[in-house]
Design a protein around this nucleic acid. Structure first.
Lengths: 159, 159
DNA sequence: CTCGGTGCAAAATGTTTGCAAGTAC
DNA sequence: GTACTTGCAAACATTTTGCACCGAG
């Protein structure tokens, strides 16, 4: 594992009060070495070669923890149920990371963005879309209200 | 349901030899009426109000069928397991619709694309990415080989 | 009438939770 | 020594499969 990756691993764990265990180190190393946007199952299968006694749960939970503290991203395929979109026109998506709702937006400019020619040559492109991760207005407002109430020292915190 | 939607529903079904059943009609209508990128569960819950005896399986299978014949799209969240990506630098994704692999690519131009100001105002943007649906080189080659063999009338077709 | 569709049940796959024992700090 | 982590098992959620009956064409 590259030196800087190791450092960011150690730092992030310490920042969040997570212990450095051999399992976590091995999982992080395996994750960084993979170019395949792996699932927990992938990592588990690979890691067993060098670490035969690790459990699947540890891999699964650790990856989730890594995502929560920002050590790794989660790509399109977040483990939830399949979602359909009847709108077949070109459009773009905003995923609210809080409420997980997906919002559409239109933009002629983004519809016409140019894909690099070497990509067009190697892949047969069927569809292109800009995907934003964001916090939607409602969720922004919700967290704002929450902060207000915390400042006031509200003791009847619900939800 | 809008007239043109109904027509494209009827046409697609006929093209693919699918029967027009009241369940399918109701599901398609519900799907088109939803702005929420619904799951099968969502559609099922709504549709039961007007059609109490429909089964969840019918909804689930029908939606999948609709996606297969191109009546609806499937958005990011395709029902598979969660996938991780340790690369935290800005980059873009190509999803192969055949083998489901995800490939990264870089593009300074795409990194700098402008999000419409009204969107930036309404949402707090955390991350932006271009996502392409495509067929990767390997899968293109595979289907090419398959066609070649079909032309030759190969009788020893293996998977 | 026939074949594909529906509804139900069970299996398969993936994710989350609870808890006792182990270990980093 | 303490609190967090691990490994295991069970619960839960979602998708897929098999099959008898039903209904659109």
């Amino acid at each position: 594992m590259a030196e800087d990756q190791l450092q960011s691993f150690l730092n992030r764990c310490r920042e969040h009060g997570l212990k450095i265990t051999p399992q976590r180190t091995a999982i992080y190393e395996m994750l960084c070495g993979s170019r395949k946007h792996p699932t927990a199952e992938h990592i588990y299968a690979e890691i067993r070669n060098s670490y035969p006694n690790i459990s699947f749960d540890t891999v699964n939970r650790t990856l989730k923890t890594f995502a929560e503290i920002g050590l790794t991203g989660v790509v399109e395929g977040h483990g939830g149920p399949r979602r359909y979109d009847p709108n077949l026109e070109s459009h773009h998506h905003i995923h609210c990371v809080r409420c997980r709702e997906i919002f559409d937006f239109q933009s002629d400019e983004l519809d016409n963005l140019e894909i690099p020619p070497e990509i067009k040559q190697e892949y047969r492109i069927l569809n292109k879309r800009v995907v934003l991760n964001a916090v939607c207005r409602r969720c922004r407002r919700r967290s704002h209200i929450k902060k207000q109430r915390q400042k006031k020292g509200a003791s009847n915190e619900q939800d």
